[in-house]
């Protein structure tokens, strides 16, 4: 089992990112802007092994809303190392914050309350670390995303399933809406579906062969292990799309529809 109680280090080479360990939340109440999610069980689309068809997930704290442009602007102002004109090319690509008018201002075209996009994994990580937080893992994110408004597991509810599929089938060719406009789910978390893709800590664990029709044939020399296993629910197109999307990413990538939110360990006794 992955140990979730490890303290995460500052990622960036320069130690300008404040180690916020002193601002640890109390073990009983989530920090402001976060809610407690889980514990629970989720079924991965691709079970890495028969034992992982259903995966238990421990309770954790998760941001209620995705990180917004306004949030990220504050971060960049406090940590100039992450300005788009100063950041090193190792951690971002040329699209980093390219939608902002300038390195330290959003401009009139950018909605402060919509999810920040054009951010890389490294930059998202740095943001969360600055709040003494981290990115959620795939299991944590998926567990949170499994909930409907009324139940931790919305997959039993055909109406909810249809609605989620509709989100993913709906064109996203308009500017992103502001966060917080949809109803919170069972855990009180908002905007997990239908707004932006979100970075997770282990995006690189989405090892689906980029040609997923291969179904694991001949993968062993490139991927140790059969990563092209059959999907548990081939009709779950939303999961397919999330997995496919994650597997196309590299850590320095930024795209127009990819943002993030932060998570945090629950420091209570298990």
């Amino acid at each position: 089992m992955i140990s979730l109680t490890r303290v995460f280090r500052v990622l960036a080479a320069v130690s300008l990112v404040a180690a916020g360990a002193s601002a640890a939340p109390s073990a009983t109440a989530p920090p402001p802007g976060m809610k407690s999610v889980g514990p629970g069980v989720y079924r991965p689309l691709y079970a890495a092994s028969p034992a992982e068809r259903e995966v238990p997930v421990r309770a954790f704290y998760l941001d209620v809303k995705p990180v917004t442009n306004a949030d990220y602007l504050s971060f960049v102002q406090a940590h100039p190392k992450w300005r788009r004109d100063r950041v090193t090319g190792l951690f971002v690509d040329e699209g980093y914050l390219s939608h902002w008018q300038a390195a330290e201002s959003l401009g009139p075209e950018v909605r402060p309350a919509s999810p920040v996009t054009h951010v890389s994994w490294f930059s998202a990580k740095a943001y969360c670390a600055a709040r003494a937080a981290r990115l959620p893992t795939e299991r944590e994110w998926e567990l949170a995303a499994l909930a409907s408004e009324t139940s931790p597991d919305g997959s039993r509810n055909p109406e909810w399933v249809a609605r989620i599929l509709a989100f993913y089938a709906t064109p996203a060719n308009r500017p992103l809406a502001d966060v917080g406009k949809t109803k919170p789910n069972f855990w009180g978390i908002e905007d997990l579906h239908g707004l932006a893709w979100e970075w997770i800590h282990d995006y690189g664990a989405s090892l689906v062969a980029s040609d997923s029709r291969e179904k694991g044939e001949g993968q062993n020399l490139r991927f140790c292990g059969a990563s092209g296993a059959d999907a548990q629910d081939p009709a779950d197109y939303a999961s397919f799309m999330r997995v496919a999307f994650r597997s196309s990413l590299e850590a320095s990538y930024t795209t127009a529809r990819l943002g993030f939110r932060c998570a945090k360990d629950v420091r209570s006794a298990p």
Binding site: M1, I2, L11, A48, S49, A51, E52, V55, L90, W121, F122, K125, H201, D202, G204, A205, S206, L207, F223, C224, G225, A226, S227, S247, E250, A251, S252
Partner: peptide, 21 residues
């Protein structure tokens, strides 16, 4: 994770301790 991100290596840790990579 960070090093793998820089090198472009993808991997998944399984519950049984094995890795796909």
């Amino acid at each position: 994770r960070a090093l793998s991100g820089v090198l472009g290596i993808k991997y998944r840790k399984l519950d049984n301790g094995e890795f796909f990579h």
